[in-house]
Design a protein around this nucleic acid. Structure first.
Lengths: 221, 221
DNA sequence: AAATAATTTTAGACAAATCTAAAATTATTT
DNA sequence: AAATAATTTTAGATTTGTCTAAAATTATTT
């Protein structure tokens, strides 16, 4: 039942997991960009992962992780986030300097190690960046809903609710092409009037007012 | 100044380090045995390490680490032993189940990580097996001298002093071919009369009495 | 000091993960 | 719906670490 995976394979699985969280179906080019490698290399790996039943993949058709693949990805995410928590809470790293180290630590294979680390840290639910940490069974706490004004720049999030129910607001949202479930990122914050530059995938970026941003709640993705 | 080393290269360096601690000059076959690989593979790696100036090596002549090589080896040993200490003291692993995990953790490259871990652990001097942990500069505490009767089975050690100065004792030591500096291992302990079976490299094992063992002090190697 | 044995090195091959360049397929324009 | 563009895949090469089998060297016997 335990498949042995190389660090490279794990990195592909993790990248595909994150891309499909944001995007649904994943493409060869996206993965190549994410991993700073060439599409041809990605295709080779896709075949390998398909053969190991980690990936549902038909050529030219895009792909997604299988159930097994998702289980493995969650295991890697769990390790990454627990180590980040450890680095910040116990070793006094800054939250902005832990990522690369966690990228290495997440590939340490011992399950016992990670479960004991989890216990030592007293089963934290969120990592230092606010992302939820999967538990032993791969379950994670729901991402808390935050106000759009509090969303970090370049953090993908999905609109989860609107603060007020007014026809005027709905009219504006319709015009801006924003609905519940719309995935967006904040690209810039303007201090002068607290307006935000917003990017929805496949559209050009546009600006929204402070008032509109305050009416929108999102969950990080 | 910072050379990038693969996990494989690091494992070779560590193996050579440990072998030369015990042996002086190291041979291709010894390394192959230690790393469970073939002599031909070792020769390939030796050339590579020589080229990187980590090894003083002339073919057919045996080899030793260069100063740089020793510095690198001490860094790996430092990481291994600090992680072992962490696993036992913080994560409640048994001292006998930490080795394989530490074998993986020792290859995490961040120097900052290991120095912060050292601080978190409050600069321990010895790991759970009693081996000294090198500090940031590669210095380690002298291995404490222990009585031969307390030496664990199969732990290589060097005779460091004798407890009493008698002609009779010296006569016996001469006959048994034991001197200050002689490297030996205890292969068996016999409960009946507390005699020990001793093995000196290149000789057949032989037995010594409890009285003789109590007169000998050793340092682990 | 020859012969034999053991060790070590070379030569050539293989698998994993990558690359470039070209071919195949799908998507988008006009 | 052709033509063009973008994406994806294939084919063939490269690098790293490994292997086996054979050759070279050193060590040990007789």
């Amino acid at each position: 039942m335990e498949i042995n995976l190389s660090v490279t394979e794990e990195n592909y699985i993790k990248a595909i997991y994150h891309l499909q969280q944001a995007d649904g179906n994943v493409s060869t080019n996206e993965v190549a960009k994410e991993l700073a490698t060439k599409p041809a290399s990605v295709t080779d790996m896709l075949k390998k992962l398909k053969q190991k039943k980690i990936l549902n993949y038909e050529k030219y058709q895009g792909f997604r992780l299988s159930n097994d693949g998702r289980r493995i990805a969650l295991g890697i995410v769990r390790k990454h986030r627990l180590w980040e928590y450890f680095l910040v809470e116990k070793l006094q790293f800054g939250w902005d300097e832990v990522h690369e180290v966690a990228e290495e630590l997440e590939h340490i294979s011992s399950k016992k190690l990670i479960d004991k680390l989890d216990a030592f840290l007293e089963y934290p639910k969120f990592d230092p960046h606010g992302d939820p940490i999967p538990d032993v069974n791969g379950k994670m706490a729901a991402q808390p809903q935050i106000n759009l004004t509090d969303l970090p720049v370049n953090q993908l999030a999905a609109v989860s609710s609107v603060g007020i129910q007014s026809t005027e607001l709905l009219e504006l949202l319709k015009h801006k092409n924003i609905a519940i479930g719309t995935k967006l990122e904040v690209k810039k914050k303007f201090a002068f009037d607290n307006s935000l530059e917003i990017k929805i995938k496949g559209q050009n970026a546009f600006t929204i007012s402070q008032q509109l941003a305050q009416a929108l709640f999102v969950k990080m993705v």
